[in-house]
Computed example of a mutant assay.
Amino acid sequence: MADQGIKGIATDYTDWPADVCKYSVVFDDILVVGTYMLDEATRLRHGKLVLYDTREKQLNRVFVMHCDAILDFKWSPLDPSILAVAHSTGHISFYRHQFRAELMFLRGIKVADSSVLMLALDFSDDGRDLSISLSNGAVLTIDISSGAIKNKWKEHQYEAWTVHYSRDDNNMLYSGGDDAVLNCYDQRIPSSCVWKDIKTHQSGVVSVLSRPPFGPYIATGEYGDSMHTLDTRRIGRPLTNANLGGGVWRLEHMYSNDDYHQVLGVLMHRGAQILRIATDFSSIDASSGIFGDHQSMCYGGDWRRRDNLVATCSFYDKRVCLWEDVNHPSV
Rank of each mutant, 00 (worst) to 15 (best):
K154S: 14
N151D: 10
E159F: 12
N136T: 10
Y174H: 06
H164M: 09
W153P: 02
G176H: 01
S146N: 08
D169C: 11
D168V: 00
E159Q: 11
D143Y: 05
S135E: 10
I149P: 07
A148Q: 13
H156T: 05
T141N: 09
S135T: 12
S135V: 06
H164T: 08
D168S: 13
H156C: 07
E159C: 03
G137L: 05
T162I: 12
K152P: 00
L140G: 05
L134C: 15
L140F: 11
L134P: 07
M172R: 10
M172Q: 10
V139R: 06
I142V: 15
Y158M: 13
G176P: 06
A160R: 02
D168I: 05
R167F: 05
G147F: 00
W153K: 06
I144M: 11
H164I: 00
A138W: 01
E159V: 08
G176V: 00
S175K: 01
I132C: 04
S166G: 00
D143I: 09
N171E: 14
D143C: 09
W153Q: 03
Q157T: 04
S133T: 10
S133E: 11
M172G: 01
K150F: 01
A138M: 11
S146Y: 09
H164E: 12
N171G: 14
T141F: 09
I149W: 07
V139M: 12
N170F: 08
R167G: 04
G137T: 04
E155Q: 13
G176A: 02
S175P: 03
S135K: 03
Q157Y: 13
E159I: 09
V139K: 04
N171F: 10
N136H: 04
T141I: 01
M172Y: 15
W153E: 06
E159A: 04
D169W: 03
K150C: 13
A138L: 00
A160W: 01
N136D: 15
K154R: 15
D169R: 07
K150H: 04
M172H: 09
G147Q: 02
I142T: 12
S145T: 13
K154P: 00
